[in-house]
């Protein structure tokens, strides 16, 4: 079964008298365990599509299914649950909580997750800190970390709830090329090891090459392909 299925999705923004058509009818489906890049120029609709898949925003029309469940009409509380349990987010500007240290930032989503004991919380956080290579920075706050280290914390935070999907909106945009590739490789390693589906947006050709499949967006439309098998496959 497709873990993500997007059917005829449009998204319009009203800017006063102007209406911006950010997405003009997107069809795509993503299998569990895929490592997918959504590529396209600025303004092509990459972030909008990720926000819709992540339940951060509602489509104007069309349908989005996550793990078979249509999320268009979900109540806010159910969307919160979906974001907490099924989806992890990685942001371009890291979006870490500045007052918390590495450990606490990663632990944060677990604090509101039901059924996770204190011990299990610690185990999960420590395992991820080790996996992203930040064991020595555990007590440091985001302001004391480099860009690459911050994004590693963000990756760990996205994974700590054991989500089935991780959405990363231009995760390398604020990093130098070497660090950006390191982050993508880290995500890829986790994808291979854990089977977590990764969907990340980028317009960096070097990063795009690391993806198993690429979906190109242009002016709010998928550039090539058809529903279910959109875009190019490596």
């Amino acid at each position: 079964m497709d873990i993500v299925c997007v059917q005829a999705v449009t998204k319009d923004y009203d800017l006063g008298q102007t209406k911006v058509h950010a997405l003009r009818g997107i069809d795509l489906s993503i299998q569990e365990g895929e490592f997918i890049s959504i590529a396209g120029a600025s303004g092509s609709g990459k972030s909008t599509l990720l926000n819709l898949i992540g339940g951060l925003d509602y489509p104007t029309s069309g349908e989005i299914r996550i793990n078979g469940e249509c999320i268009n009409n979900l109540h806010e509380r159910e969307l919160n649950r979906l974001r907490l349990n099924t989806i992890g987010f990685i942001f371009q500007s890291f979006n870490l909580i500045p007052v918390l240290n590495v450990y606490e930032n990663i632990e944060l989503p677990l604090l509101i997750m039901k059924g996770v004991s204190k011990r299990e919380r610690k185990e999960r956080v420590m395992r991820l800190i080790e996996a992203v290579g930040l064991s020595r920075q555990i007590k440091q706050r985001p302001s004391e970390l480099s860009g690459g280290q911050r994004q590693r914390v963000a990756v760990a935070r996205a994974l700590v709830t054991k989500p089935r999907i991780v959405l990363a909106d231009e995760p390398t945009a604020n990093l130098d090329s070497v660090t950006g590739l390191e982050i993508i490789d880290l995500m890829h390693d986790i994808n291979k090891a854990e089977g977590t589906t990764f969907i990340f947006s980028t317009h960096d050709e070097k990063i795009i090459k690391r993806a198993d499949r690429v979906i190109y967006l242009e002016d709010g439309l998928v550039k090539k392909g058809c529903p279910g098998k959109s875009g190019e496959t490596k």
């Binding site: 987010f89 942001f91 500045p98 989503p109 509101i112």
Partner: peptide, 16 residues
Amino acid sequence: RRENGTLRAIGFGRMK
């Protein structure tokens, strides 16, 4: 706002 948005994105409810 950023902190608020981040918390919401990672699963925190409005009232939380």
